[in-house]
Design a protein around this nucleic acid. Structure first.
Lengths: 129, 129
DNA sequence: CCTTGACCCTCTGGTTACTGGAAGGTCTAT
DNA sequence: ATAGACCTTCCAGTAACCAGAGGGTCAAGG
């Protein structure tokens, strides 16, 4: 398979696939003409990576997950703890965003949003949250 | 005021303050020795920026907000619409994270997390969400 | 007067995970 | 032969800084 087909089948852009090769996540073969030649195994890895990324795992986490996936002697505890850490990070981000959201929604609610210059949003930013 | 004092009083690191000058958000004076010399007005702007950033506004949004703040003839509608857009972006991020969170929490729940290699998290990543 | 330590300066490079574009080789069909 | 769709590498840019190198400045103490 050439990169275009793999891109289509994995759902990842060609640029991303080349980048993943560059940082050593995959190692496709090369044809005589210099084109990358992907095996089913590479496609499978890329799909794995796409799903892990969609769950918000960092590239380094993905590297670890891939290594665990390919290690027959892994302990599921390793995977679980990685996932739990990530879950906590997600929770932290969510609550940070929710706190921003609450403040901002309040300010937006207070602002008339008309043609006058008077604005509680700017006032709040100017004075002290 | 030198940068150290401003950093303390604004709550922003010196590095960040220098960066804000570099991108034109503030324009402190210079003393004869080359040190930045901040007026109250600069400090005020920095505090404004710190609060806007804490609400998640991008630097470019902050630039706009600052300009609106200093424009006596602004219309509060401009500020409100900027804030509303940002609020929508926050909401989008929150729901994306919540969706990740739901999937991940389910997987974590399904994983025994023991010394055996069998792992539903890896299985899911390998097969298809 | 000299030194020490706490300041300050600029400049370069690194971070995350790609994306865009330039310049050019390859393949397929007409 | 040529057009168009592939593919290649390499360089630069994104957001918002942070770390560190290498060096100047200032106030206080010996």
């Amino acid at each position: 398979m050439n990169i275009g087909e793999v891109a289509q089948r994995s759902g990842l852009p060609s640029k991303t696939i080349r980048y993943y090769e560059e940082i050593g996540l995959i190692t496709p073969l090369r044809s005589a003409n210099g084109y990358r030649s992907f095996r089913e195994r590479d496609l499978h890895k890329l799909a794995f990576l796409g799903r892990a990324r969609a769950l918000g795992f960092s590239i380094e986490d993905c590297r670890t997950l891939l290594a665990l996936y390919e290690d027959e002697h892994r302990e599921s505890a390793q995977v679980k703890s990685l996932a739990e850490e990530h879950l906590q990070a997600i929770d932290a981000k969510i609550s940070q965003l929710q706190s921003m959201r609450a403040t901002l929604a309040h300010l937006v609610h207070c602002c008339a949003g008309d043609s006058r210059p008077d604005c509680p949003i700017l006032k709040d930013l100017a004075n002290s949250g």
